[in-house]
Amino acid sequence: MQANAICFEAPVAQLYNKLPPPREDLDDVLAILFRGPAKPTELDFRRTPFLVRRNKVLEALRWLKLNHDDYMDIEISAQNLETYPENYPPVTIEYRQTDTSKIPEGTSLHDMDADMGTEEGECSFVVHGLSGERFDTMSGTLKAKAL
């Protein structure tokens, strides 16, 4: 198993005075696609970085309220937080069956390994993508650091 995040710039659809947002709003900005020879199981989900630990979210929001001017006036919603499952990602999950865990478009002609990823332990996680107007105006040094 291996995980990749692909980020696209999107306009902010809504500003929230209450955090975390309602669970149903997450599907507007986040989706998870699993691909491979088998559907993900609950054990697979536990190995990914996609689970929400409510106590960690609550701690982070409390810290932001105390330490960041932009979060000073938010209300922390225990009711919204309780709707986030702890053993399953809080967003829609799509599954596409494939014969291998490799992505054909990203595989070298000389890559002869059967599969990519790990069979046990934590799932590796890579974030891909930088986008937006600010990226176009960055110097080469800043772009290299960002990448």
Rank of each mutant, 00 (worst) to 15 (best):
F125W: 08
E133G: 03
R53C: 00
K56L: 10
P37H: 05
D113W: 05
A3N: 13
P89S: 14
V91K: 10
G132I: 06
T92G: 15
Y16K: 11
V52H: 01
P37S: 11
A60M: 08
I76W: 00
H110M: 11
T137F: 01
L19K: 12
A144Q: 12
A78L: 10
I76E: 01
N80L: 04
P49R: 11
P89A: 10
P104S: 13
K145S: 07
L15I: 05
A60L: 02
P104R: 06
P49G: 10
R46Q: 13
E94C: 11
F135E: 07
D113A: 13
I76C: 01
E105A: 15
T107E: 14
N87G: 09
P11C: 00
E94V: 09
K39D: 09
V12C: 09
P49N: 13
A78I: 02
L66C: 04
Q14R: 15
A146Y: 07
M138D: 02
E122S: 14
E86R: 14
G106Q: 14
E120W: 02
E119N: 11
V57N: 07
Y88L: 12
K56C: 01
D25C: 09
E9W: 06
A5N: 12
F45P: 13
Q79S: 11
G106I: 03
E42D: 13
A144E: 05
Q97K: 15
H68V: 03
Y88R: 15
V126M: 12
C7A: 11
L109Y: 05
M138L: 15
T83Y: 02
P104K: 07
L109C: 02
L58T: 00
Y84D: 09
E82R: 12
P37V: 00
F45T: 05
R47V: 02
D115H: 13
A38Q: 12
L66R: 13
I32A: 13
T137K: 08
E42M: 05
D69F: 09
T92M: 15
T100D: 13
R47Q: 04
G106P: 02
K65I: 00
M138N: 02
F8K: 12
P37T: 01
S77E: 08
W63D: 14
D25M: 04
A31N: 14
A60C: 06
E24H: 11
S131E: 06
E119L: 12
A60W: 02
K143P: 06
I103G: 07
L142I: 00
D70E: 12
R134M: 09
R46Y: 00
T100Q: 12
L26I: 00
M1D: 00
P20A: 03
Y84T: 04
F125V: 01
M1W: 03
L58Y: 06
D115S: 12
I74F: 07
M1A: 07
V57A: 10
N87M: 06
D27C: 12
E86Q: 15
L51M: 14
Y95F: 15
V57L: 11
I76K: 02
C7D: 04
K18L: 00
N87S: 14
E82H: 10
G117K: 11
P37G: 09
N87V: 04
H110R: 12
A144L: 13
E75H: 08
L26Q: 13
Y71C: 02
R23L: 09
K18C: 05
Q2L: 07
L51R: 10
F45K: 09
T118I: 05
Y88I: 04
F50T: 06
R134H: 09
L43H: 13
T83K: 15
R46G: 07
N87I: 01
V126E: 14
S139K: 03
